[in-house]
Nucleic acid binder design. Sequence first.
DNA 1: ATAATATTGCAATGTTGTTGCAATAAATTA
DNA 2: TAATTTATTGCAACAACATTGCAATATTAT
Lengths: 124, 124
Amino acid sequence: MKRRNTPTKEAVLSVITKAGQAMSQDAIEGEISIDINRATIYRVLNRFCEDGVLHKVIAEDGKQYFALCDGCDETHQMHQHFHFKCTVCETLECLPNEVNFSIPNGYHVENVNCVLTGVCKKCS
Amino acid sequence: MKRRNTPTKEAVLSVITKAGQAMSQDAIEGEISIDINRATIYRVLNRFCEDGVLHKVIAEDGKQYFALCDGCDETHQMHQHFHFKCTVCETLECLPNEVNFSIPNGYHVENVNCVLTGVCKKCS
DNA sequence: ATAATATTGCAATGTTGTTGCAATAAATTA
DNA sequence: TAATTTATTGCAACAACATTGCAATATTAT
């Protein structure tokens, strides 16, 4: 499964990078210049996640948001920072704050999904 | 909108209470003795959330899980504790750990959704 | 018992995300 | 450069989760 470079991949990554925040599939499709199939966008996004380029966040609307891995550790497993979802502008951004927690013995944590919902600075 | 007592409400609340953990709509429907419509279960659950009896957690599968408000504050707004979703037994439980965070000025947090995913004590 | 209205069931709808399969295109090799 | 391999894409279909409109029902108050 060697990756190939395609205009689709470049376009998707470019849109997310320019946005500077996490995006959902429909937001990406709305911002992208060329016409890309919905299923393809999902497949590209999931591949980026596998490769550690993006990480996936589940917001309170149950939707998947994809954010650039900036400073995420190389295991691609833990993205232990908070995320903030604005209910007004609908954007989801990564916060610098790390998530600190302790769990009872015997529990094995594989993933962390922390989302704060509210109104962001711009919208308030 | 004064609430009324119905067998449906009692049955739903009873199932969740007996389970001692958060449950999804389909899990509730599976455990419940009487036959209740899917849409009705959702409406009952959402009403319980409005009344501060339950709180809703969005897991990494994007599904809604409903947990008893035990020690949740009376504003019904913030349920700032961690949740743990087991990928083996599929259950979601409330952890006692409080979520601590600080956000930049100008942000207004209305809700907190923190879910750790992995393997729970029983399953590991 | 009657009236008011909250609740329910049913069907339909919407949204989000995934999958199978054939067609296409990128990278490798000759 | 041309041929080959196979990763990627588009399309359509499907699945799961959740919500909504409306008529029927059941609860509560009078």
